Simulated scan of single mutants.
Amino acid sequence: MWPLRKWGALMLSFTLALSLLTACGKAEDKEAKGKEEQTQADQDQQPTGEESPVPVVDVSLGMEPNTVVAEYEGGTITVEQFENYLAIQSFINPQAGFAIHEKLPESLQLFIDSYVSEIVMAERAPEVANAESEAKQLVDRIKSQYLMVFGNDEKKLEKQMQDQKVTDEDLTAFFVRYKKVEAYLRTQVQEDEMKKRYEEGKTQGEFTIASVRHILVSVGDQAAPPAEGEKKALTDEEAKKLADDLASRLRKGEDFAALAKEFSDDPGSKETGGLYEDVEVAMWVPEFKQAALELPLNEISDPVKTDYGYHVMKVEKRSEKGYDDVKDQIRSQFVNEKYDAFMDKELPSLMKKVNLPEKK
């Protein structure tokens, strides 16, 4: 969904958006406490009333409510229905609200495409057990995050919903449809293609987990400064020489963790003795990933060059996730792909007419 156009990303997107707002709300609270010494004269200059940390989005299209904005094979969508959809999207995902606020034709087109796609796919879905109860759980989850933003003030949440013109019933109906679309997309994924994807991923190390200890020697301005003083930027040749020296010292038995704390330019592992423990190797840059996959266990590597500099590595542990461990992850990948395929290939033939306002 918006803005990633990935079905499975909808829940993540609104969770992240509201989490950011929660963090902002806490920061604002701290800032407010720091202003207790503000003079009364300064306070008098502040605008009256409280402004919500989550903007209320004006979703009005400036058209008559019964006007048809979209006609597709099997149905139509009116202005009133579409504005309600935009209001719900704005409420569950403030990031989407920013796009809706601008009323750009291309943004509105994406939302109308999503709306029609959801309706069509939901109609094709098999019976979904517990759809309403699961939908209500999702609504409660969103509302609980809003309460975090509003300091557990339920009246502020009620006002936010009233101002955005969304109700519990609206949100529940939206998520019932969401669960139906999810069910439909899952029926489009076959077990054999999931297993094939797993076997392909195994050959590329997608499901390998490793514990790797490393020392990064950065080149040039990438070098991280120590706690005190300035660190001389190394040329490529100097960095390579230092990495070779460190590899030699490690092979002679010096303590890896101690050398990492002294020499490594990687702030993410420096204080843990250079260790990244039980990490999916697919997350790493290609050269580091390849070494993590191929280096014999507990052997000190020759310096491995990446865009970050030179790495001296030691793989301490390596394992592979089984199919049952990752099949839900693989299914989610296919669900997103099936959603994109529907939007790209089938939806255009279903759409008959779109009547959206031009940007003023």
Rank of each mutant, 00 (worst) to 15 (best):
R5C: 13
L12A: 14
L16T: 13
L16N: 10
L21Y: 07
D42W: 03
S52G: 02
D58Q: 11
V59D: 04
M63P: 04
T67D: 10
V79G: 05
V79Q: 03
F82H: 03
E83M: 12
Y85K: 12
N93T: 09
Q95M: 14
F98Y: 08
I100N: 00
H101C: 03
K103G: 11
L104N: 02
S107L: 06
F111L: 09
V116W: 00
A125D: 04
A125N: 06
N130M: 04
A135G: 02
K136I: 13
D140I: 06
S144T: 14
K156R: 15
Q160M: 07
Q162T: 11
D163S: 15
T167V: 11
T167G: 01
D170L: 10
F175S: 05
F175P: 01
R177C: 03
K179P: 03
V181H: 03
E182S: 11
A183P: 00
Q190T: 15
Q190V: 13
K195W: 08
Y198Q: 06
E200S: 06
K202N: 03
K202L: 10
Q204F: 02
H214S: 01
I215A: 04
L216S: 06
P225T: 15
E228F: 13
A233K: 15
T235Y: 09
D236M: 08
L246V: 10
S248Y: 03
K252H: 02
G253F: 02
G253R: 01
F256E: 01
F256V: 02
A258W: 07
F263W: 13
F263S: 07
G268T: 11
T272S: 14
G273M: 11
L275W: 04
Y276R: 12
D278V: 00
A292M: 00
L293T: 11
E299Q: 14
I300A: 03
D302L: 00
P303L: 02
P303W: 02
P303M: 07
V304T: 07
T306Q: 01
G309I: 07
G309D: 10
E316S: 13
Y323W: 09
Y323S: 10
D325F: 04
Q329V: 05
R331Y: 06
S332W: 07
Q333P: 08
F334S: 01
K338W: 01
F342I: 12
D344Q: 12
K345M: 13
L347S: 13
P348E: 10
M351H: 08
K353P: 04
V354H: 05
